[in-house]
Amino acid sequence: MRYWKDCWGVNSMYYARVFITLKKSIADPQGNAIKEALLSMKYDGVEDVRMGKLIELKLENPTREEAEENLKDMCEKLLANTVIEDYSYEILEV
């Protein structure tokens, strides 16, 4: 078991948010269903709805660069399926 205090002064904590969206070319039946619901509620201005995912992560890494490198790897390998999804992220130091 590693404790936060053991890493004190070595690593920094980062807070990351990953946004995953369906590629524009992929139909989004969930987004369409939401759009239809909004239109039925008389929100007439709704042109399009696309639904995605937000994943929040806490990362402990020596540098921001390393945190970002890891995060990108995670997105490519697991968090997004790049056949159908795009991803973007933001990283904040805590």
């Binding site: 992929i26 139909a27 039946p29 969930q30 399926n81 056949v83 159908i84």
Partner: peptide, 17 residues
Amino acid sequence: LTEAGLLPGTLLRNQNM
């Protein structure tokens, strides 16, 4: 198998949800 890259493509939500 598609997620593992052993097969091409992917399986999306059914069109009619």
